[in-house]
Design a binder for these strands. Structure first.
Lengths: 253, 253
DNA sequence: CTATGTGAATTGCTTCACAGCC
DNA sequence: GGCTGTGAAGCAATTCACATAG
């Protein structure tokens, strides 16, 4: 609204659709790649292609942030990187703890993508005393007895749970009690959290099951062609652009 | 059940909404837990709570599959487990290959959730010759030179990419050329695939960025109340149930 | 009387198409 | 002339509320 001639976009920070928020990191990544190649400006068409969406959607998304483009020209890459980073809150540094340093926790600790975008692994926590002190990704693992102290000392508000399913709810409750208000959950369980706490879930097996569903369809319907090679073809239904399937999170209490 | 005067539910297998498909694995997990506890029947209300959705949504979702409940009673747990499994294609066995056996690939190979639901890790593939033959999760890693042969010999149609971003597109193309039609991508890149190939993406850093966005909001707006405890309140917009934010996949060519 | 199954209403997201500005 | 920004139209998903079956 406002179509503001006022300097400040006006729309800023109020009611950006969830679907748009979920795409901002995608745009940011594409823009960062352009920035590294020193590309100065980019059109909605080009950027959309790089991010894997269509250009109308991208322009609409950006319109929620403000008018950051130049008509007839496109978007200034650096400027847009900055604006999206700011909107996502990545201009500040977010200390994160990872709880559960098994295979997955270790993989997460080693994952470069965190550090590169405003996230800092402040601590690794595990319930196994044998792990304590052992460095993973250069960070010594701490025992979960000290969880609350670690959270508070580091001002952590984002926690990552990579424990077995059985331990996840208890860990979640301790994190929340200690002050964490956003949780990324890799354990295959539904977490109950009080209002005001956000949970996002990543579940490997769920993603595979969704693929299996579509895979089954292909075999049942389309195929028949012969048997060996899949033979793409047919079904424009699920095949084309991007039906946003997904389970978000943000659980009720 | 079956109220159907036609035997076949009629709605079967045609046009189940993506959003519903994405929730079926959630229901299935909750049902499996009930089944293990030998609970015979469950109401939409109870099951919805266990799956973290509301009951109206659950009933609507199930209505796309058919009429599998009993009015005044609820759903037969075992029967529903079977129906959903069948709908998702989990009554058959899906051989899967994991490409890129780094930290994450190894974690995936060790992840029990795969095997437990119709998925079988048929092969682990890595480009590093030093890895070849080394067993991970009891499965010997094979060199990527043999990728095509492995896919074909095992009849693999689902591939998991856990390589570095730079290698992902090339791996993807080889998988597709060899006959894979569904890909689960953990590399932080947009994959281009021909029509008819499904891609789902899991991106750790994107999930964190979405959390950071909401976290920033909490700090900026709501807070003020005191500082320590989050204080829930306000913002019914993002806080309550489950806005399905997410980036799907299924790229255009 | 209870809890499912589902049309109808609502809300939110995407796509279209073009006015506005460079 | 070209490309952004955005109302308006079109779709899809969610929620409501109640008829219907057990």
């Amino acid at each position: 609204m406002a179509t503001g001639r006022t300097h400040r976009p006006a729309t800023r920070s109020r009611g950006i659709p969830e679907a748009t928020v979920a795409r901002l990191p995608l745009y940011l990544r594409a823009l960062t790649a352009l920035s590294e190649r020193s590309v100065p400006t980019v059109s909605s068409e080009e950027l959309a292609a790089a991010a894997g969406v269509n250009s109308a959607k991208l322009r609409k998304d950006f319109s929620y942030l403000g008018s950051y483009g130049t008509r007839g020209v496109g978007y200034d890459v650096e400027y847009l990187v900055y604006q999206i980073s700011r909107e996502l809150g990545l201009t500040q540094d977010w200390p994160v703890v990872i709880v559960g340093i098994g295979n997955l926790g270790a993989a997460l600790a080693n994952y470069g993508g965190f550090a590169s975008r405003g996230f800092r692994v402040a601590a690794l926590i595990d319930a196994d005393p044998a792990m304590a002190g052992k460095p993973v990704a250069g960070i010594p693992v701490q025992h979960s007895d000290d969880l609350e102290k670690i959270i508070q000392d580091n001002g952590v508000s984002i926690g990552v749970i990579a424990t077995p399913a059985g331990a996840a709810q208890a860990v979640c409750e301790r994190l929340v009690a200690a002050g964490v208000t956003s949780i990324l959950n890799f354990a295959p369980t539904v977490l109950s959290v009080p209002e005001g706490v956000d949970v996002r879930k990543v579940d490997l097996s769920i993603e595979l099951q969704i693929l299996a569903f579509h895979e089954q369809r292909k075999a049942g319907e389309g195929a028949a062609s012969d048997g060996g090679v899949p033979a793409a073809a047919a079904r424009s239904e699920s095949a084309d652009q991007g039906p946003d399937g997904d389970m978000p999170a943000v659980m009720p209490a």
